[in-house]
């Protein structure tokens, strides 16, 4: 049989289309995730898990001593190089001078403490403020992602899909808190996850666990004897930049009004 060029093209297109449809159907009926090789840890049904939790982070600025152990712990727990200037959490030292000026510093995110940068001179007050991702209920960073690489989980944590992120930095620009950065080794957007791999195992975030004074507290508002819920019910608290309408879930106790 001799095929005309036309028939050849038509048959070819038909075959290709048939193949595509077939692989799609097979892929639907038998998704890649169900192969035995990947069955190491059975994926959880997250919708169920999420219903049971509502996480909240409480920062008590009166207790922070600026030791920076939280910053070091965070970097080690989450694979952010110690020598990198970027960090998922950091500590700022505020000094309100007698003349009304406010000096804010955070040398190397505060990870080596503040021994070299002690405040001197006439001052009306000074204190430390730990910062991290606010896991906003209305996260501006999620909206701007062009490839759907960042999202909010059902229990309120904003995560980045490292396989999808193209490193365009829109989200870094969109965050009003400067909580996002480009990972120096992976070249994808990175941010605090409230140690999602720890909290979903029932552990505390690394920064909370290593804080020597309890300046950082974390908990589940839906837990029966929730300590953070009690704190938030009994004490007045603030969030950062409330006027932005982002609805942060990191609550600050005794936050000075000069903090922005």
């Amino acid at each position: 049989m001799r095929l005309s060029r036309r028939d050849f093209l038509v048959k070819g297109v038909q075959l290709a289309a048939g193949g595509l449809v077939a692989t799609t159907v097979v892929g639907k009926v038998w998704p890649a995730g169900t192969t035995l090789a990947q069955g190491k840890e059975a994926p959880r049904d997250w919708t169920r898990v999420w219903e049971e939790h509502e996480w909240a982070f409480v920062v008590d600025t009166r207790r922070c001593i600026g030791c920076g152990r939280c910053v070091v712990a965070c970097k080690k727990e989450n694979g952010v190089p110690l020598e990198a200037e970027v960090t998922r959490t950091w500590v700022e030292q505020y000094a309100v001078m007698a003349d009304g000026r406010t000096e804010v510093i955070s040398p190397h995110g505060g990870q080596d403490g503040f021994a070299e940068t002690k405040v001197t001179g006439e001052m009306s007050k000074a204190f430390f403020v730990p910062k991290l991702c606010n896991q906003c209920e209305k996260p501006p960073c999620v909206k701007v992602c062009p490839v759907a690489a960042t999202y909010q989980t059902g229990d309120g944590v904003v995560l980045v899909d490292r396989e999808r992120c193209i490193g365009c930095r829109y989200c870094i620009q969109a965050c009003p808190y400067g909580a996002r950065f480009l990972h120096p080794e992976l070249h994808v957007a990175d941010k605090c996850t409230w140690c999602y791999h720890r909290i979903t195992k029932g552990l505390l975030p690394a920064c909370v666990q290593t804080c020597p004074t309890g300046a950082r507290q974390f908990g589940d508002l839906k837990a029966p004897d929730s300590a953070v819920k009690k704190i938030l019910e009994e004490q007045p608290s603030n969030v950062l930049k409330p006027a932005m309408g982002t609805e942060p879930q990191v609550y600050y106790l005794a936050l000075d009004r000069v903090v922005i």
């Binding site: 759907a148 989980t153 899909d161 999808r164």
Partner: peptide, 13 residues
């Protein structure tokens, strides 16, 4: 679960 890759939740957790 939403407009993202659901498997990524497992990746993190």
């Amino acid at each position: 679960y939403g407009y993202y890759r659901g498997q990524n939740v497992n990746d993190w957790a």
